[in-house]
């Protein structure tokens, strides 16, 4: 389960390669820090029939725990699953976001 973490000004995006799952199969937990993702890839029913010549693909349970580089706002976190990649977007906690300070002229 290769995982990557990408940081932008406003958020951190964690991507995990998890082909052959359904979006409901993931269990994502963010309670402050770290982020924890778990799930299970089950054998398909089709697997029972026929015989296998090569089996390189992995099945079963997995878990990844990733330390986040900063405090995130877990209430605004979102996740999507596309082409077998789970992408979790965690916005930076408001206190950490860059603020522009305007100079008052007086």
């Amino acid at each position: 389960m290769s995982a990557e973490m990408q940081e932008t000004d406003a958020a951190v995006v964690v991507s995990i390669e998890a082909p052959g799952m359904e979006s409901g199969d993931f269990n994502i937990r963010v309670e402050g820090n770290p982020l924890s993702i778990s799930g299970k890839r089950s054998y398909s029913k089709q697997r029972e029939q026929g015989r296998y010549h090569i089996t390189e693909r992995a099945y079963g349970s997995f878990q990844r725990t990733i330390s986040l580089p900063f405090e995130v706002d877990d209430s605004k976190s979102t996740a999507k699953y596309k082409h077998g990649v789970l992408e979790i977007s965690l916005p930076k906690s408001v206190t950490l976001q860059p603020r522009r300070i305007t100079i008052e002229t007086g």
Partner: peptide, 19 residues
């Protein structure tokens, strides 16, 4: 990574290509 299965109908190549 691939699995290759054979059954009465023929062969199936299953490949993980995430992303």
């Amino acid at each position: 990574q691939v699995d290759i299965k054979e059954d009465e109908g023929g062969f199936t190549v299953i490949a993980d290509v995430p992303g």
